[in-house]
């Protein structure tokens, strides 16, 4: 496994849904790479195409009414347009997924242990007892107390945070190199959110995995990702290292997202800044920059011509804007 070739290489990925009212471009022209042992954050508002992107990257899309173009290569294996059998070889063993709602992502009538050791027995060919031992080990790894007893319980007996830990254990069972976490903490309490995120971070470091963390919450990605992809209306509007994007973002949308996050350093009762307007209708995107109608810096050009991604100062930092914010002086 050479570190020079990226683990995941997404090139010009487009996902278009065919609907009765016309095509809806949920993801258009998205490119990014993910290296081994790295955490990438995908951020954006609701409806910006984050979830569709993360599923398309895995090759997971509805059977019908969808057109996917472009390329998504995991360890050099193309997942876009691959047959179900080809994808099944990769799914679970090289890439695993954690879902938003732990209440629905576990089978309610299957014992917890069985949901974890299924993949070990079917895909890894472990014996019943070996799979059981490994599943209990995994439950312990994700911090579930008395795993031997929990192994035999049904998901209904666990709290949301515990269930999400089980979901993570199940995802780890196939020892994947890439973990896709689609809003893994949205369905959980704030106090549990931090625990789950720290657990993910810790596991990533220990198991030398790469993680794609999809979220709308910048607080979630701030300290846990090395790079960020900011999405708006199905397109990447800014990409770069997390440090660069927080300190020297150029795209007004990124700033708007940052200003919309609560900060502990703000005085009490500070009103959160909201982004005026609503995300655009993906079926009728404006000709120019999709963000222009909501942007305070928009000029005539923004409404007619779409900006392409262009390099900024930082390494691997790109943004798509005609009127970028100035780079703050004094920051090196």
């Amino acid at each position: 496994m050479s570190d020079s070739s990226p683990l995941l290489e997404v090139t010009d990925l487009c996902t278009t849904f065919t609907t009765p009212t016309g095509p809806v471009a949920a993801v258009s022209g998205v490119s990014f790479t993910l290296n081994h042992d790295e955490t990438l954050g995908i951020v954006g508002e609701s409806g910006s195409g984050k979830t569709v992107l993360s599923r398309t990257v895995m090759g997971l899309q509805p059977r019908r009414n969808v057109v996917v173009t472009g390329s998504s290569r995991l360890n050099g294996v193309e997942l876009v347009g691959a047959s179900e059998a080809e994808k099944r070889r990769v799914w679970g063993l090289e890439v695993a997924m954690i879902f938003q709602d732990p209440m629905t992502s576990l089978n309610p009538v299957m014992r917890i242990g069985k949901q974890i050791d299924e993949i070990l027995r079917v895909r890894r060919g472990l014996s019943r007892s070996a799979a059981r031992d490994r599943a209990i080990e995994l439950l312990e790894l994700v911090g579930i107390p008395s795993p031997t007893q929990r192994y035999r319980e049904y998901p209904g007996a666990l709290s949301g945070g515990m269930r999400q830990r089980v979901v993570i254990a199940a995802a780890l069972a196939g020892s994947p190199q890439l973990l896709m976490a689609d809003e893994p903490t949205t369905g959980l309490d704030v106090t549990i959110q931090a625990q789950i995120l720290n657990l993910l971070d810790d596991l990533r470091a220990r198991l030398r995995m790469s993680v794609v963390l999809v979220t709308h919450d910048l607080g979630v990605v701030a300290t846990r990702t090395s790079r960020l992809v900011v999405m708006y209306a199905g397109r990447v509007v800014e990409v770069g290292s997390t440090r660069d994007l927080f300190a020297r973002h150029r795209m007004p949308y990124t700033r708007a997202l940052l200003e919309g996050s609560p900060r502990l350093s703000n005085p009490a009762h500070t009103r959160l800044v909201t982004i005026p307007g609503r995300p655009p209708n993906l079926a009728q995107l404006p000709a120019g920059c999709s963000f222009a109608p909501r942007c305070a810096y928009a000029t005539a050009q923004c409404h007619v011509e779409r900006p392409e991604l262009q390099p900024a100062d930082g390494l691997g930092h790109y943004f798509a804007c005609w009127n970028p914010l100035p780079t703050p002086t004094g920051v090196s």
Binding site: L60, R88, G92, L106, E118, I119, V122, R123, A170
Partner: peptide
């Protein structure tokens, strides 16, 4: 239509399974 079906799918389970 529940998510655990998709979860099983991305664990590599076949349709029959």
């Amino acid at each position: 239509t529940r998510e655990f079906v998709v979860a099983a799918k991305v664990q590599g389970a076949t349709d029959r399974r």
